[in-house]
Amino acid sequence: MNRATSLTSHLPVIDVESAPFWAGTKQHKFLIRHCNACGRSHFYPRHSCPHCWSDNCEWRPASGRGRVYSYTVIHHNDVLPFKEWLPYIVALIDLEEGVRVTTNIVEGTPEVMHVGMPVEVVYERVTDEVTLPQFRPRAQT
């Protein structure tokens, strides 16, 4: 199974709000929005802060480190290309910056998975436009 090349559908439709994020992943940076008014970060990226509605937000690179908040092992999906990935892991990750993201867990098996598991970002180049962030288990430090 090669996720990166098999993912020809379900690719992000890049728009004005998301373009900086996907430009970032091409350079192996995980950019999140930080609000200078209330000091909180958010993800997915919006123009204004969802916490205080300030426009005073900027893109900041996240550490790419976090912990598993929850996860599931998908055993049934009729939709291609996911059908060919079965079984695969989808997880919610809490990044160190306090935002939660969706990802697959790569380089890890269902047996090693647990809530709270430390993970780090890796990047899969899918097309010229899209490099997809993925997460893998990280040695605890």
Binding site: L7, H10, L11, P12, V13, I14, D15, S18, F43, Y44, T72, I74, H76, N77, V79, F82, W85, Y88, V90, V101, T102, T103, N104, V126, V130, L132
Partner: peptide
Amino acid sequence: AQYEAPYGLT
């Protein structure tokens, strides 16, 4: 949804 759809979350 573009930040979720590529991961096959059913």
